[in-house]
């Protein structure tokens, strides 16, 4: 691993200033799970490493019924998984984060670090897209807020601009009765990256789908939202035929590649199967959760 200069700023302002000063030579480190591997393999050789560990309140997890959920970029996967507000109001996030890697890595890796890495095999992005989450990106001059779904640009590439730090994830207020599903398909070891990851949310009105967000990981160069597939079901009656059609469209919308976890063709096939299963799970959840069912059928 290359030798580097190490800074531990005490504020975001200071971190932004350091980032501006050192430009391309600098890398931020939070949990380190991805960065250290790349540095050990000499894929990244930064001359300056800026730690975000000493920035106060960078790992907050706050919930407000009106505002929704705000998570500091430095929050670790494990903390998000265990946060009572997440478990209570965002079961989809709980379900997603508890499946990320294993507890030791969840103890280390931060949500901000995960997103800026842009690794399409990781789980959180798809669920955040399904929940219409937004992220705040800050630089020395100010900040911008963009939807997570626009953040992923290409394989290991995000919209993070030089000098920017991802500081916060904002998830809109949870809709009671929101139908949801998360499937991490692991055909090899249960201890693996997903061969296909599906995150789904649906707002239901009786048997109609008012709104839907469907996102995937591990089936494209980016963590992606399947908008064409969503359109098949949006404002439509949810029946086997339409769900099947949506699954079919989703399988053409994804852009998987062959790897140790399966061929591209197989992953498309799985998308067809898993989308149907996700809808089924979401409907079942919505039907069994009494309050959820009641609220979901209320006029939007």
């Amino acid at each position: 691993m290359v030798k580097f200069e190490y800074f531990e700023p005490n504020s975001l302002e200071e971190a932004c200033a350091l980032l501006k000063e050192h430009g391309e030579d600098a890398r931020l480190i939070a949990g380190g799970t991805a960065l250290i591997i790349m540095m050990r393999q000499r894929l990244l050789n930064p001359r300056v490493v800026i730690s975000l560990a000493d920035i106060p309140d960078f790992d907050f997890i706050r919930f407000d019924a009106k505002d929704g959920l705000r998570i500091g970029a430095g929050a670790r996967h494990r903390d998000i998984e265990l946060a009572p507000v997440v478990q209570e109001h965002y079961p989809l996030l709980y379900e997603t984060f508890r499946k990320v890697a294993q507890p030791r890595i969840r103890n280390m890796g931060t949500i901000g670090g995960n997103l800026v890495q842009g690794d399409p095999l990781t789980d959180p992005g798809a669920s955040l897209i399904a929940l219409d989450a937004k992220i705040t990106l800050r630089n020395a001059g100010g900040h911008r807020v963009i939807p997570v779904e626009n953040f992923f640009v290409d394989y290991y590439q995000t919209d993070l601009q030089p000098g920017e730090i991802l500081t916060e994830i904002h998830v809109p207020p949870s809709l009671p009765g929101l139908a949801w599903a998360h499937i991490k398909f692991l055909p090899r070891s249960q201890e693996d990256f997903a061969t296909v990851g599906v995150a789904l949310t649906m707002r239901l009105n009786g048997d109609r789908c008012q709104d839907i967000r469907l996102a995937f990981n591990s089936v494209a160069p980016i963590i992606m939202r399947a908008k064409r597939a969503e359109e098949i079901l949006r404002r439509q009656k949810v029946d086997d035929d339409r769900v099947g059609k949506m699954a079919e469209v989703a399988s053409t919308e994804v852009d998987p590649m062959d790897d140790n976890r399966g061929s591209a063709e197989y992953k498309r096939e799985l998308v067809r199967v898993l989308v149907r299963r996700a809808v089924k799970q979401a409907l079942e959840r919505s039907a069994t959760g009494k309050q959820g069912a009641k609220q979901a059928s209320a006029p939007a």
């Binding site: 090899r188 070891s189 249960q190 201890e191 990256f193 790897d259 140790n260």
Partner: peptide, 28 residues
């Protein structure tokens, strides 16, 4: 039987590491 194996391309193991070559874990 079910899990192991590494893709080889032109004699080169693709991703020779424990992330891509999985061995069974306790849950398996």
């Amino acid at each position: 039987a079910l899990i192991e194996g590494l893709r080889m391309e032109e004699g080169r193991p693709i991703n020779p590491n424990f992330s891509d070559y999985r061995v069974p874990s306790m849950r398996d």
